[in-house]
Amino acid sequence: MVRLFSGLPCPWWIGGGYAIELAVGRSFRPHGDIRRPVHELGMTSADGVPYLAPEVQLYYKAKAPRPKDEEDFTTTLPLLTDDRRDWLAGAIPLTYGVNGPHPWLTRLRRADNR
C-alpha cells in the first residue's frame, strides 16, 4: 500500500486496524479483510465526476441500515452488475454476519431482482 500511495502529490494515511497496528508497532490480530482491487473502488459519472462504486458504498451502509440506506439499496440493486452484486453478497456476511443473516442477502441473491 505504501508503495502504491507514496507517489501521490497529496496527503494520505493508513486507516482501520492496520493503523492501530502501526501505532502499536506489531500485528496482533487477524483482520478478516474484505479485498477489492483499487481500480474497482471508484467509477466515473457520464459528466466525468468520480464517485465510490455503489456496491462499496452499500457495503458501508449495510452495517446498521437506516431508512435512507434501505432506500439507497432498493434503488441501486437493479443497477448492480452480477459481479458487483456477488461482491457485496460475499462482503456483507464476512463483516456484518455476526448476529445472523443480514436482511439484504436474500434480495442480493434473488435472480428475479437482476
Results as ranks from 00 to 15, higher is better:
residue 55 E to Q: 09
residue 57 Q to P: 00
residue 22 L to R: 10
residue 79 L to N: 12
residue 3 R to P: 00
residue 82 D to W: 10
residue 9 P to C: 15
residue 54 P to D: 09
residue 58 L to N: 03
residue 88 L to K: 00
residue 39 H to L: 13
residue 28 F to Y: 15
residue 28 F to G: 09
residue 7 G to P: 02
residue 58 L to D: 02
residue 102 H to P: 01
residue 71 E to P: 09
residue 100 G to Q: 02
residue 29 R to M: 14
residue 32 G to T: 05
residue 48 G to D: 10
residue 97 G to C: 01
residue 83 D to H: 15
residue 84 R to Y: 02
residue 77 L to K: 04
residue 77 L to T: 00
residue 44 T to G: 08
residue 2 V to S: 09
residue 89 A to L: 03
residue 27 S to H: 07
residue 1 M to N: 15
residue 3 R to G: 13
residue 87 W to S: 02
residue 68 K to L: 11
residue 98 V to I: 04
residue 9 P to I: 07
residue 41 L to Y: 13
residue 30 P to T: 05
residue 67 P to T: 15
residue 112 D to R: 10
residue 87 W to Y: 07
residue 111 A to L: 10
residue 113 N to M: 13
residue 7 G to W: 01
residue 6 S to R: 02
residue 26 R to S: 06
residue 80 L to G: 04
residue 73 F to W: 02
residue 110 R to S: 07
residue 13 W to Q: 15
residue 101 P to H: 04
residue 84 R to T: 03
residue 28 F to D: 12
residue 83 D to L: 08
residue 48 G to N: 08
residue 55 E to Y: 06
residue 59 Y to Q: 04
residue 63 K to W: 03
residue 51 Y to K: 12
residue 24 V to N: 06
residue 46 A to V: 13
residue 101 P to W: 00
residue 30 P to N: 06
residue 108 L to K: 01
residue 59 Y to A: 07
residue 37 P to R: 12
residue 85 R to W: 05
residue 97 G to K: 02
residue 34 I to V: 15
residue 32 G to F: 02
residue 24 V to K: 13
residue 103 P to H: 12
residue 68 K to N: 14
residue 23 A to L: 10
residue 42 G to R: 08
residue 108 L to W: 02
residue 6 S to M: 10
residue 80 L to H: 00
residue 26 R to L: 06
residue 71 E to W: 03
residue 57 Q to L: 12
residue 75 T to G: 10
residue 105 L to K: 09
residue 99 N to C: 04
residue 49 V to N: 11
residue 63 K to C: 05
residue 56 V to R: 04
residue 84 R to G: 00
residue 79 L to S: 14
residue 39 H to W: 13
residue 42 G to W: 12
residue 112 D to A: 13
residue 29 R to N: 08
residue 82 D to S: 14
residue 102 H to W: 02
residue 51 Y to M: 13
residue 18 Y to I: 15
residue 4 L to S: 08
residue 99 N to P: 01
residue 60 Y to T: 05
residue 95 T to A: 13
residue 78 P to W: 01
residue 84 R to E: 06
residue 50 P to D: 12
residue 44 T to N: 12
residue 73 F to R: 06
residue 44 T to F: 10
residue 15 G to Q: 14
residue 70 E to Y: 13
residue 96 Y to T: 01
residue 76 T to P: 06
residue 9 P to R: 10
residue 38 V to M: 14
residue 4 L to C: 09
residue 45 S to L: 08
residue 34 I to K: 07
residue 99 N to Y: 03
residue 84 R to H: 01
residue 18 Y to M: 14
